[in-house]
Amino acid sequence: MEKKRILAVGVGGQGILLFSRILGEVALRAGVPVAMSEVHGMAQRGGVVETNIVLGPVRSPLISKGEADVLVGFEPVETLRALGRANQKTVIISSTDPVIPQIVKDGLATYPDLAEPLARLKETFDKVYLFAGEKLAKEAGTARALNVVALGALAGTGLLPFAKEDFLNAIKTLVKPRFMEANLKAFEAGFAVTAGV
């Protein structure tokens, strides 16, 4: 396969690590080379979290300026913040549900109005998929399944050399049984966002 660099960005607590684990497991089972770089520690305390995932014949588990093939944003401001790592052809998949930083709640910074930037995002990049990730996750049964909504959306683009079943099987291995039903629904909801377009 061709190499694919996938950058996932969001906020501590949104489940990005599990998102990457599942994606990695899918690749492992499909025999596709995979490497990724995770953020642990201090940054997880409500800070920006990102995972760099590379598939195929590429060794560096970090994505540089302009090099992302896919940008998966769990939060709209974080998607905007990561755009320097994208290029014209980068496929952008992003939730539009904001997570307000504590610093904004404390009145020390402002959260931007997203209507215009999100419109510009669609104009600027070739392929942009936006969806209300938290809403879809809640409809599926739990807001915590946002990560699996995002995974479904990534799967639905058909950009990766994996079948839908491959993703579902990996979810079944890695997600705790009591959250399974909600997560399978969440995956379908995300899949429909991109596969239907």
Binding site: Q44, V77, P101, Q102, V104, R120, T124
Partner: peptide, 16 residues
């Protein structure tokens, strides 16, 4: 990356 001058000022998200 394409021109990103339209991206508004983004609030920082320091760990808290």
């Amino acid at each position: 990356p394409p021109s990103l001058t339209w991206v508004p000022e983004l609030p920082p998200r320091p760990p808290t």
